[in-house]
Design a protein around this nucleic acid. Structure first.
Lengths: 183, 183
DNA sequence: AGTGTGTGCGGCAATTTGCCGCATGGTTGT
DNA sequence: ACAACCATGCGGCAAATTGCCGCACACACT
């Protein structure tokens, strides 16, 4: 670990925008370890303030932010520096927003949960490469499902019935799944 | 605008690429009625031959084509004329391929079934309209699984065996899942 | 030819699911 | 206090899905 001198930093700057503070911290740590100069923001406004003082070369932006959509942030950041590489993150992936994000200039669009390596790989991606990013995929399908269920469940304050309805699965099945370990 | 090679026709040229012949015919008719000079192709090779004799201004391309993916066609068409407006069509929408298509230069990405008006609207679309509603829960668990599988599969160039191994599931099961619709 | 790997698919047992039911506990409005 | 409503936990059983075997075929590499 190289101790860094404050002001002029030759590490690439990374702006993380996500309303989930814990998520930010974890990701910030992981990306710092990978050699980035990391700043975090939890709202669009904060992100803009930060971006203006220190235009980031890289950014990860959550789609859903308090107030406005993360999409407009993509637009703003690109306006500040069209070279900025932006990865969109989202808890709930949708084709429409994915298309939108890419058209606005995002370099990639990933669904949570993601790990730092996937984000790194996404940053590296140039447009339309046929290349294969040999990133390791730690998550099995079962595990992914578990993570997702946990998130939705959490968002609904642990209400199993509601969660089951949203997830379009049987309450009984959800119950049974919850008794099991993440595969 | 440069006139195309054999432009005795002032109607905009449209190339429809889809292996489903019936679909092509129906769409061709509908688009002709809307003022396009329509050509159809059912394979990547056919499409390339057609495109070289008469560079299309518009194109609709199915993602799944016999042999290669429709994505490479996007690349080729854009190389011939970067002004070509391309709408990707797909039976089973997946975020991964959507991202890929847009990055390669497609102007939009639509899931079948689509009608001619939707395609028209997609052609008209310019850059990002930053206001896209973020639906709270677009994905059921089954759908999530599907998206994830598509992503990993895509990253591994469609190699089912490798994907199954990474995902820690049986190849046979993966095969079976792939034949089904996203839930 | 021989080896290795990927693919498609059939069949069958084991597991998981969907869907029913019922008893229980908490909350809300009257 | 009472009914009405909802969420929960769990049992049982048929239906669907998965795991795991096999086999044939195609393709690349040595």
């Amino acid at each position: 670990m190289l101790p860094t001198i404050e002001a002029d930093d030759d590490r690439p700057s990374l702006l993380i925008v996500d309303d989930d503070v814990t998520f930010c911290e974890v990701l910030a740590k992981a990306m710092t370890k990978r050699g980035f100069n990391v700043h975090c923001a939890h709202t669009v406004e904060q992100a803009l303030v930060l971006a203006e003082t220190c235009v980031p070369e890289y950014a990860t932006i959550d789609l859903r932010l308090p107030g406005a959509s993360g999409l407009i942030l993509v637009e703003k950041l690109k306006a500040l520096d069209s070279g900025t590489r932006i990865v969109m993150l989202t808890g709930y992936a949708s084709i429409t927003t994915a298309v939108e994000a890419i058209k606005l200039g995002a370099t990639h669009y990933l669904a949570k949960p993601v790990d730092a390596d996937e984000i790194m790989a996404a940053f590296e991606r140039t447009s339309g490469d046929a290349e294969v990013p040999i990133s390791t995929h730690p998550l099995s399908v079962g595990r992914l499902e578990w993570e997702y269920i946990q998130r939705v469940l959490n968002e609904n304050k642990g209400n199993i019935s509601v969660t089951a309805r949203i997830l379009n699965m049987h309450r009984r099945t959800l119950q049974r799944k919850l008794t099991k370990n993440p595969r």
